[in-house]
Design a protein around this nucleic acid. Sequence first.
DNA 1: GAGTCTGCTGAAAGCGCTTGCGAAAGAACT
DNA 2: AGTTCTTTCGCAAGCGCTTTCAGCAGACTC
Lengths: 356, 356
Amino acid sequence: MRKNFPMSAKLRDVAEKAGVSVATASRVLSGSAEGVRPERRQAVVAAARELQYVPNAHAQALARSGTTHIGAILHDVSDPYFSEIVRGLQRAAVDAGQLVTVCNSYRDPERELAYVGLLRSQRIGALILTGSGLDDRSYSERLAAQINAFASTGGRPVFIGRHHIAGDAVLPDNVGGARALARALVTMGHRKFAAISGPPLLTTTRDRLDGFKAGLAEHGITLDPAAIAPGDFTREGGMAGMAHLLDAGPAGYGSIASDATCVFALNDAMALGALRTLRDRDIDVPGRISLAGFDDIPATLDTNPTLTTVRIPLAEMGALAVSLALEPPSDELRVRHIRSEVVLRESTAPPAALSR
Amino acid sequence: MRKNFPMSAKLRDVAEKAGVSVATASRVLSGSAEGVRPERRQAVVAAARELQYVPNAHAQALARSGTTHIGAILHDVSDPYFSEIVRGLQRAAVDAGQLVTVCNSYRDPERELAYVGLLRSQRIGALILTGSGLDDRSYSERLAAQINAFASTGGRPVFIGRHHIAGDAVLPDNVGGARALARALVTMGHRKFAAISGPPLLTTTRDRLDGFKAGLAEHGITLDPAAIAPGDFTREGGMAGMAHLLDAGPAGYGSIASDATCVFALNDAMALGALRTLRDRDIDVPGRISLAGFDDIPATLDTNPTLTTVRIPLAEMGALAVSLALEPPSDELRVRHIRSEVVLRESTAPPAALSR
DNA sequence: GAGTCTGCTGAAAGCGCTTGCGAAAGAACT
DNA sequence: AGTTCTTTCGCAAGCGCTTTCAGCAGACTC
């Protein structure tokens, strides 16, 4: 494709026009050499400008065997959680003169694996894998194989928010954050909880749920398994999850909502959905029921009531991942643990009837 | 950098292991040839798998002089407006087997120009420029030069939502949408309006403002220039803009809010911010004042009240841009006009005191 | 003024892959 | 068995750039 086009000027053209050899031209244009007489230097620069010369990055990559490209694989850029991360990634990457290729895996393991291959073939210098890891044997093994191969050829894999297979990692404190949230909620007066969970196989789901349970357990409270609605980390999932809690309720329990005074949605997107369902049914938040999310995506400030959540510094994590990727590799894997922080807002309040 | 690493397997290794020539290996691995005996074919495939062979995309790009990479330059991926577009872009690109490199320009013309160069040097096949164009002479000219050079070497530039310099374009109907919105608002009963504008140099700002004014004009209403607060298309800008309207008010007019019954924020992000300011001051929306935005980003559904806005199919526009970029080039520039649609939600209602 | 350095340059060898072209090896015909 | 087609392959020439290495001035020694 795109053949027989007046191919853009190449280094040779510049060299000819400047009356020097390609070697010299390369030296001045790629900056690597000071050892070129000023006059020629200028001649080359002038010729390059005149010809609108743009170096062929592929040729350069081939010749130098290395690129200035970073690959990032994540669930979906338009999901605020990831787009915040990407923002941090981008910023740090640009500062380091790197370009970023982002790929949406839509949480499809196969697609993710395919992207790893594609990105590897682009000879990216670093690969950043974001999003909860999947707790699946076959997948993990295949991914590990790819990652190892990548790393063994000098590539730098970095994981964000997921169990790291063979690379540095930036991990938010899901367990601790959820536990702290549970504590805060109990302190507020809540005793009966319900939750909207995430995809069962995601490690994030497990960590947050476990942390939350642990926090409750500290106060001798248990989370009834029947009060855990399935969810998928999307807004729609949150809507459905809340509806599930409200309608079906666990067999024999009647509606959960008439029982629980506080619902923990495992991420903000679902909390947003849950809030919508609640509003649609005219259920007062936090009057009748308190609601908390996790992540602290920007939208949590625009809801009414504003959403209580656990803040994790998404953009910073992205930036941190890039800097890890760009640091010279070390012998042992580096893991950066990121503190999470409970942010109490309007969507949670002491249970209305403090009777109990 | 990253030298002396056990470089990953190359085609030659695969060929040797399979006992064939690189030419043959290339043929089977790159699929371009059916003319290879099945047995050898399999031998090559097997060898490739065994060696974990990953083709070097740079070498391929160089040899074929062409890539399967699309570049996209936009304001900021984490801005919902753009992340929706990117989502559409990504989807369409993947379907076409293309990778996408996204670059955040942060609306900085210099950065944008620099990215065009960088992306060109990556020999991307298509370049998608998103976000409002800047109404600046020098910038336009330099960009046009770059774009023309790109196009003249077979590259396919496509513009989304901005005046196209020299490439196909996907344009939302900003003028028409804003006009329709104005009509709807007037029909609802409003007579006095205020607006929160965008960056003055952006064409989008002008189009939306002009459209809105035109809509009002149809009913003999004019928008007092003093009732137009400056804005910057961000949430914070919206907060400030609304505060400006509320506090400062135009000299001699007293507070705009005590006058206008409806505020049009030129995009949803600002509308969100405006809503926040309104809530902070306990000003009822739409009871005391109606509010409308533009774009219909997902977050408009999560506010309370939900936001009246003008819907433009962001994701579709992204996808459309990719398909334009991938179609064989035509002689004349193709321009796809995208219909926008007024979506009335809870944030607008007839003015409380229909006295007037 | 012969011998050494230093500083610039250019020739040329790749980087890993694709592909046009001719050769080899069968297949199909007299 | 000798010819003529087809297939199927491998050779080798790039793709555009970087970088080593050796060459050649001119600047320095003594």
